[in-house]
């Protein structure tokens, strides 16, 4: 066992050796937790929770992949195994040729992690102090450190925040600060666990724009867990869906909508109360049906892969349209439909 691990890490030591097989490789990965539950006054029942139940996938260097699923699906457990802070119960795992749980410290120099709900920054001190700490912690050469810091400060708009104690930063500012902290040592892989959670629209856009540039310019491999499908839409060509510890889907986002038969919702306000709108699909576009009517307001569902524009045009031509908005499907709904669609 030992010999095998040595050999494997030796071969992929520089990260290029395993390019063809994937930069991140999971093979039948499992994580089983033993949970003890009180079953009486003194008696305790042991039972197993299979948080990750046989997941296999590969991510190539420079890919940007969305990793989504409902709460408790096993996303964070997977990420923790990828960073080495959890040991798998079964299966195998390689990140840049390294077995994470065996060589956590060596791997730490090559990965960056951002947990949206936790912070690595020093709470009481200015942002700059935390960065100085990263400088020493990852033994970043001085020139490189300055260059990376300048770049992050510029792109993440941190200039005025460097001297501000972290506890005084807003959530969005803190998140940008945390992302910069994870990138100062030029990680080849970046894990982002809910990086946009709780952020306002402008902060979300800033974070996404930055990640996009990072991926393009540096070729950083990014694995992103999120509840926000817009994150995925704007960043990832590939998305993986996990539920109950199993990989349910691996492919493009458009494909996911098809598989999940997901629907977008057009919410229209008409001039007056009218019978439910129904459009048949024809040559000019897909159909649409009312799923809810509340006075002059109607909720109209149409396939997520279809364009909303021709539908709006047709409605506007036939009905007294006052106002409208389009609602994106959420991940839970897509996954729920995926289950129903599964044979």
């Amino acid at each position: 066992m030992d010999g095998f691990a040595q050999e494997a890490t030796g071969a992929g030591g520089d990260g290029f050796g395993t390019l063809e097989d994937g930069f991140i490789t999971l093979d039948g990965l499992e994580k089983v937790f033993q949970v003890r539950r009180r079953a009486g006054l003194l008696r305790r029942e042991r039972h197993e929770v299979r948080a990750v139940d046989g997941i296999s996938f590969q991510v190539a260097r420079g890919e940007m992949v969305g990793y989504i699923g409902p709460n408790g699906a096993g996303k964070s457990t997977t990420i923790k195994m990828l960073t080495g802070i959890l040991t798998p119960s079964g299966g195998s795992l390689r990140v840049a040729g390294i077995d994470p749980s065996r060589e956590r410290t060596r791997l730490a120099h090559r990965i960056g992690v951002v947990f949206g709900q936790r912070t690595t920054l020093w709470w009481d001190l200015p942002l700059r102090d935390s960065y100085r700490l990263m400088h020493r912690m990852y033994r970043i050469p001085d020139g490189r450190y300055r260059e990376n810091l300048d770049r992050c400060v510029e792109l993440l708009d941190l200039g005025e925040l460097l001297e501000v104690p972290v506890r005084q930063l807003s959530l969005g500012q803190r998140m940008r600060g945390d992302i910069a902290a994870a990138l100062l040592h030029d990680p080849e892989v970046l894990y982002l666990d809910e990086p946009t959670i709780g952020l306002d629209v402008i902060s979300k856009a800033k974070v996404r724009q930055f990640l996009k540039e990072l991926n393009v310019e540096r070729g950083t491999t990014v694995l992103l867990t999120t509840h926000d499908l817009t994150d995925i839409e704007q960043l990832c060509r590939r998305v993986m869906v996990i539920d109950h510890g199993r990989l349910m889907y691996d492919g493009s986002l458009a494909g996911l909508h098809e598989v999940g038969e997901s629907e977008r919702m057009l919410v229209v306000d008409l001039e007056r109360e009218l019978p439910p709108i129904e459009l048949k699909s024809d040559g000019s576009g897909p159909g649409l049906r009312a799923v809810k009517v509340e006075g002059p307001r109607q909720w109209l569902a149409f396939p997520a892969s279809a364009s909303a524009a021709p539908l709006v045009a047709r409605i506007a031509a036939q009905y007294p349209l006052m106002d409208l908005s389009v609602r994106e499907p959420d991940i839970e709904a897509v996954i729920a439909r995926m289950y129903r669609a599964a044979p």
């Binding site: 802070i85 730490a108 992690v113 947990f115 936790r118 912070t119 912690m137 990852y138």
Partner: peptide
């Protein structure tokens, strides 16, 4: 208690 210790554990320190 909060699990933030996970952040400390993956760092090379």
């Amino acid at each position: 208690r909060t699990g933030d210790i996970a952040v400390d554990l993956y760092r090379p320190v």
